[in-house]
Design a protein around this nucleic acid. Structure first.
Lengths: 187, 187
DNA sequence: TAGTTTATATGCATGAGTCATACACAATCT
DNA sequence: AGATTGTGTATGACTCATGCATATAAACTA
C-alpha cells in the first residue's frame, strides 16, 4: 500500500527541516574548530581521508570552489600551519600536504562532527535508528546516481562540492569499494 | 536489543552525509529563486508563514542576523519589489510587508523546496518512508527541546536562526499548536 | 521636562569568494 | 630540437553579504 500523498508531503517537510538543522549545527560546530572559513573543514577532512598530497586543482574540485578560491584557502591553511605546499613530480603543480597539526585538526573536526550527529541520534530507539539507517542508505545511493546523471547533462562545468564532504570513511561501514559515494569521490 | 555501537556510528555518518547534501541542494535551489543572497528565502518564507507585517527586529531574530544585516536584507527585498516598509503603530518601528510579487516568490520558494525534497524521498518504499517520517519527528522534537535548553543557558545573546526556517506550515501535518517547532517559532 | 530605553538606519570594515589575467612548466607536432 | 598548445598555479581587482560602531528618532519613565 502506498503512503498517502499528504503524508509524503509531511515527510518531505520534516526531512527539509531536519536536514537544515542538522547541517547547520554540524557546520557551525565544525567551522569553529579551525576558524578559517566555511570550506576549511571540508578541505582538511578531504586531505585527511583521501587527498593528502593532492594538487590544488584536485582540492578545488573536491570542494566545489574556483581554483583561485582554493589557492586562497590553501594560503590560509598554510598560514595557520595546518598544511604546506611541497614540490610535486609535475613541476608546475604543487602538492598540498597536511602538517602534523593539520592532521590533528582534521581528526578533531571529524570527532566534532560525530558528536554533533550522535547527539541528534540519541533521541531514537534502536528500532527507529535501524530503520533510519536503512532509509539513509537508500537515499544516499539514489542521490549519488542522480548526481552522476546531472553531471553528464551539464553544460556549465562549474564544479560542485564532493557529495560526501566531511564523511568519516572509517565510519562508513561499507567495505572498501562498496560505498558508491566513496567511489564517486575517489574516482 | 540495542543497536551495536559500530552501527550507530555508521548511522551518524550517513545522517551527516545526507543532511549535508539535502540541505545543500535545497539551499541552492531556493536561493536561485530570488537571487538576493542566502537569507532572502528564509526571510520571504518567514513573512509568508507567520511574520508578515512584522518589524525588522522580529525578522532579524527569526533569521539569526544582526539588526543591520536585516536592514540591508530588507533594502534588497524592497529594491526587488518583494517587500515594502509601511508605517507601524509604533512610530519608531517599521512594518515589513510582502508585496504581491513577494508573496508569489515566497510560494515559489516553498514549491521549489518541496520539489527538491520529494526528489530525494522518491527513492524510498512506502515502508521506508513511514519509518523515516517517524524517526524525523522524534529527532525534530528532541532538537527543539535541546535548543530551548541551550537558549536558556546562553550568555552571548547572539540570535540563532529559526529552527524551522523554510518550513511549509501547511505541510507540517501536525494540527495547529501541535508542532513544537512551530510553537517555538511563533511564541 | 529630562533621561533612558527601544527601533531603525548608516558609514566603514571584513572575509570569503569570483573573474580576468599573468606566468611557469609540460606535452605535442612538426 | 624548436614552436605551439595545453595545463596548473598565483595574483590583482572586485563583489557581496554580513558585522561593528554609531547616529537618529520615537517611546516610556521619573
Amino acid at each position: 500500500m502506498t503512503q498517502p500523498l499528504s503524508s509524503r508531503r509531511h515527510t518531505a517537510n520534516a526531512l527539509g527541516a531536519l536536514s537544515l538543522v542538522v547541517a547547520d549545527r554540524m557546520n557551525t560546530a565544525v567551522e569553529a574548530v579551525a576558524g578559517l572559513g566555511p570550506s576549511a573543514p571540508a578541505a582538511l577532512v578531504a586531505m585527511h581521508e583521501f587527498l593528502d598530497g593532492g594538487s590544488v586543482t584536485q582540492l578545488s574540485s573536491a570542494l566545489g570552489l574556483t581554483h583561485s578560491g582554493t589557492v586562497r584557502l590553501v594560503d590560509r591553511l598554510a598560514a595557520a600551519g595546518l598544511a604546506e605546499r611541497v614540490g610535486a613530480p609535475d613541476g608546475r603543480a604543487v602538492s598540498v600536504v597536511l602538517t602534523a597539526r593539520g592532521r590533528h585538526t582534521a581528526e578533531r573536526i571529524l570527532r566534532t562532527r560525530e558528536r554533533s550527529l550522535e547527539s541528534v541520534l540519541s533521541a531514537l530507539s534502536s528500532d527507529e535508528a535501524d530503520h533510519l539507517a536503512a532509509a539513509l542508505d537508500t537515499m544516499l545511493t539514489a542521490l549519488t546516481r542522480v548526481r552522476a546523471e546531472e553531471r553528464s547533462a551539464r553544460t556549465d562545468d562549474r564544479p560542485r562540492p564532493w557529495l560526501c564532504r566531511l564523511c568519516d570513511f572509517a565510519a562508513c561501514g561499507r567495505g572498501e569499494g562498496d560505498c558508491p559515494v566513496h567511489n564517486e569521490a575517489t574516482s
